[in-house]
């Protein structure tokens, strides 16, 4: 059974196992909420000028710089890991995009996509932050993404990220002096020519950093398929990106709950 078929089956099973909804409550709640929407529309229609002024004020407030620590200096690159900032930054979508942008010096970047998920530690939430860009050069467009996930502490040697069917040629695992393990997966191109290379770093403290690059442009592109023969970053470059110390500071911020959830 293909992965897609397995996924479909798992989704159906998850829905089958879902707790039943209160359909009647949903229907009446929708009516009540819809009624409020109608009233609000009527009020807004009668006070358009006031709303415009208020909206302008809100927008101005939103555009103010967030009260977060400034991003670190833009000195590191994918081949020269940086030093983690000594301050305690808050992780936001914008900050994640900035950090990745700084690690792709000189690249032509477009279609930024960021995601920050967090929450309280009490319920052990999924805590992750990611950033991605489309990188365009003379050979075409490619995607580059980094994703930081904070898991519970664990022994990295007990975990494998090499998928079933991979070989030592396509997937390598490197034990690092700090106890972390670095997995580089470089599968053959798919039938349509798509290629995504991925490097995963797992540290004993539960920090997981996934860096990947594909030969497809990111969302927003008009390209209908791969535009390069290979991703813009190879696995050594992805390894340098994944092991950049700055992601540890992101992981620590996620663990400490210093996140502003959002996506773009």
């Amino acid at each position: 059974m293909s992965f897609e078929d397995e996924l479909t089956r798992a989704l159906r099973q998850a829905v089958d196992d879902a707790p039943p909804p209160s359909v009647e409550g949903i229907a009446f709640g929708a009516h009540q909420r819809g009624t409020r929407h109608k009233r609000r529309r009527a009020v807004f229609a009668g006070a358009a000028a006031v709303v415009l002024l208020a909206g302008a004020g809100t927008l101005a407030a939103q555009l103010r710089p967030a009260a977060t620590v400034a991003a670190p200096a833009a000195q590191p690159s994918t081949t020269a890991p940086s030093t983690a900032p000594s301050t305690e930054p808050t992780v936001t979508v914008e900050r994640m995009l900035d950090l990745l942008r700084e690690r792709l010096p000189g690249a032509t970047l477009s279609t930024p996509v960021g995601l920050v998920r967090g929450g309280d530690d009490q319920h052990a939430p999924v805590r992750t932050a990611s950033a991605a860009f489309t990188v365009t050069d003379s050979r075409g467009s490619s995607s580059v993404r980094v994703m930081v996930v904070r898991l519970e502490p664990r022994n990295p040697s007990t975990t494998t990220y090499c998928p079933p069917g991979s070989t030592p040629t396509t997937c390598t695992v490197t034990a690092r002096p700090d106890g972390s393990r670095l997995t580089a997966y470089r599968p053959e191109a798919a039938l349509g020519g798509e290629q995504v290379w991925v490097v995963t770093l797992l540290k004993p403290d539960g920090t997981q950093v996934i860096a990947d690059s594909g030969n497809l442009p990111g969302p927003g592109s008009k390209a209908d398929g791969p535009t390069r023969d290979a991703p813009v970053l190879d696995t050594p470059q992805l390894s340098a990106l994944a092991t950049d110390p700055v992601w540890q500071s992101v992981s620590d911020a996620i663990a400490a709950g210093r996140t502003v959830p959002g996506d773009s």
Partner: peptide, 25 residues
């Protein structure tokens, strides 16, 4: 666009495969 859907599908499957591949196996 259809291209965007294909691109997002490809990326999402890649991510899901990385997270679920072992579980399915």
């Amino acid at each position: 666009s259809s291209t965007a859907v294909r691109s997002r599908t490809h990326r999402a499957l890649h991510r899901m495969r990385a997270l679920l591949g072992d579980t399915f196996a």
